[in-house]
Write a protein that binds this DNA or RNA. Structure first.
Lengths: 199, 199, 199, 199
DNA sequence: AATGAATGAGATTTCATTCAT
DNA sequence: GATGAATGAAATCTCATTCAT
């Protein structure tokens, strides 16, 4: 039987860690980091939300910064919507998932925190990039490449640049106060990929 | 014209306010707001940078929030690069100015602050929208409309959506850690407006 | 009219410092430093004893260490008992004053603090040396030199070494749990200066 | 012989204590007590230095104070330098050993801790007195008595007072920042016992 | 108006001690 | 017995705001 991860690495000595406390702390931290930002997130609040004492947090994370960074590492890569074979349709589904996730999790707020703290705490943006931004970009880019292979995009289209354009529509719309609901994904795809997708 | 802000609500009676101080305070506040974020920006630091006492700041702005909001109102609408008549070329110039401004002023950091504080202090994002985002969008949209009139864009192109796409490339690139220097504007325009701009 | 010190250095601007607060803080700090030692002395306790808020202390002293050092600087050089012309008698009086001062002010406790903190906070011992040890030594040495000039001590007696011996008796006696009251000074002088003082 | 301490109060039933740990804990505690003082010495640091867990310490010593007291009890009485028959020469050797020991073990720092904690934890000074001060005084006094018997000291010399004077020179010199190296012992003896020792 | 003083309400971090294997 | 986990109670320092000239 193979070692399947964290749950197995139990030392025999000492009082065992109260199970679930790790998760409770990280979840609470991520929630508060999102809702309040890094500086407003207090360890008191995290402890209260997680149902542990502050010292228990410090047992796991030497500093508040470490805690925040660890919380960001728990961001799961984007769910992969089922693929239909029609790359453009799949792309729109992926964009819709992107928008729904950002909306549901108040992602723009978390992005704001990472950007605002970049000067003081660059780890935040770094982890967010690695665990949230890059996986999403990879998924989008793969679909763009597939679409190009299917002839739905010009052969010289730059998948990375188009990825920025597609995802960027959301950021720009949010910043401008424009609606990002329902058929946002379709509108974004239409605008960026143009009439070529609806011949 | 209506009274639009705290700085105007002065009594005409009594000793007049030292005139240069308003500007010094707002400039210092905007700088620190950008560099440190809202929560890290301390009134002590603003006072020091402006060469005034903390109490002098409170004389003009009842709270720290009011100060930050007022500082954001001083954001000047984007400079308008000279226009050549070639709408697409002017558009690229406008985008280049956009990127240069954001880079020079650490605008992404300020954007982060406004997004991160949205829950607690929605005024920040509101003012940023009004004074920075909308003017820029208007300039870009006007050029897109002109390009469409010149036949350089499809007649059914949606200027607002394309504006989001063009500006959004910058946000997405920054967030992904992609380069946004030199010929960023040209690459963004090429990606979003496609081969249509280089027939 | 001449400037006579601290009390005159009032800036015209700003709220004037609450008089007596400086002294209250330093007095409380010195007392607590003596009674509790440096690490046990809390700023809360100092604030309470001085009747000010903690922040008021921090306004004057950036750190706890600075406060403790400043408190030690307020140690007044030893009182100079009146001199009779009989150098040996004056010396005994000086030693009696030394013992009385140490006893009354719990000086051994304060000495302990300075010694115990030497590794972490050498300023404490440095200030204690300058403001308490050296003045006392100077007074004792001067009397020893006078006694030597009067022929009451051998011409080759080393005043500095004898100063250490005389004052050291107190330290050693305290450390050994021996009595240091009433006629301690006479006994110490007799032991160190020997029969030579009572021919 | 009577039971003299905590470390002995073990149950004979149950798993026997790991034997080397007592010594490791006490040694580490004494070192840290000396280097950091009582309040700065943390049980975490003692546990780390001793290679045991904090709980293991509490198993032997109910409180931090008990641990510190027990550590002081392990102080060994002074080494007895070989005696030559010349009591004054032996005395100088004894003083040299005293100075060397205090210097090597940072004894003044430990003395400071005991003095500083006297109000809160009088056990510390009590144990230090019993295990370090008194043995040394006894050794010195014995040599002084021998010297007196040999005619090298005045018949009415008070050995206890002279002991305080001799050892006190070290305390006073250290407190004054005077050198206590190399020939300190000879200088101290010369100052206190006078030219009589070098006829 | 302008300023320096003063403060109450935290925020992060530390630590001796107790608990559960 | 030994250990790592858990915690309550501080302690230092910070900061937006108010006060007294």
């Amino acid at each position: 039987m193979e070692n399947t991860g964290v749950a197995d690495c139990r030392n025999t000595a000492g009082r065992p860690r109260c199970p679930g406390k790790d998760a409770a702390i990280l979840t609470s931290a991520l929630t508060l980091l999102t809702q309040q930002g890094f500086t407003r997130m207090t360890l008191d609040a995290v402890a209260r939300a997680a149902g542990v004492s502050k010292a228990t947090i410090h047992l796991r994370f030497k500093t508040k910064t470490e805690l925040a960074a660890a919380a960001l590492k728990t961001l799961r890569p984007c769910s992969r919507p089922p693929e239909t074979g029609d790359a453009l349709a799949d792309l729109v589904a992926q964009l819709a998932d992107f928008a729904a996730t950002l909306t549901r999790t108040h992602g723009m707020s978390l992005i704001g925190t990472c950007l605002a703290e970049e000067a003081h705490t660059p780890e935040l943006l770094a982890h967010f990039r690695e665990h949230a931004v890059q996986p999403r970009r990879t998924a989008v880019r793969r679909l763009l490449e597939r679409a190009r292979a299917q002839g739905a995009l010009a052969p010289d289209a730059d998948p990375d640049a188009l990825t920025s354009a597609l995802l960027g529509v959301f950021y720009a719309d949010h910043l401008a106060g424009r609606a990002t609901d329902e058929d946002w994904a379709e509108r974004a795809a239409a605008a960026v990929l143009g009439v070529r997708s609806h011949p």
